[in-house]
Amino acid sequence: MAETTLNGFGAKAARESGLRGVAADWASDQRAFKSASWGKAMMWIFLLSDTFIFSCFLLGYMTVRMSTVEPWPNTSEVFALHIGETNFPLLLIAIMTFVLISSSGTMALAVNYAYRRNRAVTIVFLLCTAVLGATFVGMQAFEWTKLITEGVRPWSNPWGAPQFGATFFMITGFHGTHVTFGVIFLLIVAYKVWRGHYDRGERGFFTSRRGDYEHVEIMGLYWHFVDLVWVFIFAFFYLW
């Protein structure tokens, strides 16, 4: 059986650059993305599909925001934190966003160190990312609790359009689920780095496919995507 260089890092044949290169790749045999492994290609396509899901959620939110007959609650008041005497509009959300964006940074570092085969540092950054992600989810739980105690329900709220609660719980819930799954997989990847599975090419539990340090990067693709989606949710839901 041929030596498997799944990740394509071995394949460095001289290729034309620019559009000609793209055309040449797509006209070639075997594979169209010359430097993407199967796993990476699959993650990209999955993310494309997921983009459509989040887009539909956001477009649905915008539509009901227009169709509802009651006024939309003022988000800078609803999402304000009351500390001491003053109200800080959007404070919690600002922190959450900061946390999540930072986690993208630590994730990128983890990918970098993974390719250098620096296991210890990779694990540190993977765990950092997981902790930041968990913090995000925790703060989201806090925000949900706060709103629920203030009387926000999927079907009603004290300040106006009932669609506010509905879209809020649905969209942040769906995104939070993505983050939660991300944290779980970060922990699994960290464990596998720690045990050296990627050095030995140990088979994965689910895919029965040999592990590779590229998995850290694939994990990263997902994580960055989840962060990016958050930016849109933040902009369209909290700032608008």
Partner: peptide
């Protein structure tokens, strides 16, 4: 299918939770 997925989720909420999407 994502569009159908989202439509199903929303309608499920309308039916089960009483939201008004």
């Amino acid at each position: 299918f994502p569009a159908l997925f989202v439509a199903c989720v929303m309608m499920l909420f309308d039916r089960v939770l009483g939201t008004s999407f």
